[in-house]
């Protein structure tokens, strides 16, 4: 039988995959994909806790996370388009113009 721990472990694994992506990616679009993976992992954990404690609060927070993810994508992609127009690439190493 599948318990709460199963869902939490799968959520932790997916979150770690996203974290690894955030750490190793150098392309900004790919960084956005990795953050989406992390947000989805948190949503799974919220839905699982909501189911196993018979409480609707977890689902509410998952809805707000989805709303935040949608607005993050809208603003972030606008910024990416502006950056691409300015620099011609989305590589973080090309975009770093402060020496330190």
């Amino acid at each position: 039988m599948i318990g709460l721990t199963h869902y939490l472990v799968i959520s932790a694994l997916i979150f770690s995959i996203g974290l690894m992506g955030v750490l190793r990616r150098r392309n900004l679009l790919m960084l956005f994909f990795a953050t989406e993976v992390m947000l989805n992992a948190v949503n799974i954990a919220f839905a699982a806790i909501s189911h196993y404690y018979n409480d609707l609060t977890g689902q509410m927070f998952a809805f707000f996370i989805i709303a935040i993810a949608a607005s993050e994508v809208a603003v972030g992609l606008g910024i990416l388009i502006v950056l691409y127009k300015k620099h011609g690439s989305l590589d973080l190493d090309d975009l770093a113009n402060m020496k330190g």
Partner: peptide
């Protein structure tokens, strides 16, 4: 380094949740 950090965070998260 990234694989070690990612693996360690995965391990610690799984242990916490399990």
């Amino acid at each position: 380094l990234i694989f070690v950090l990612g693996g360690l965070s995965a391990l610690s998260l799984v242990l916490m949740f399990a």
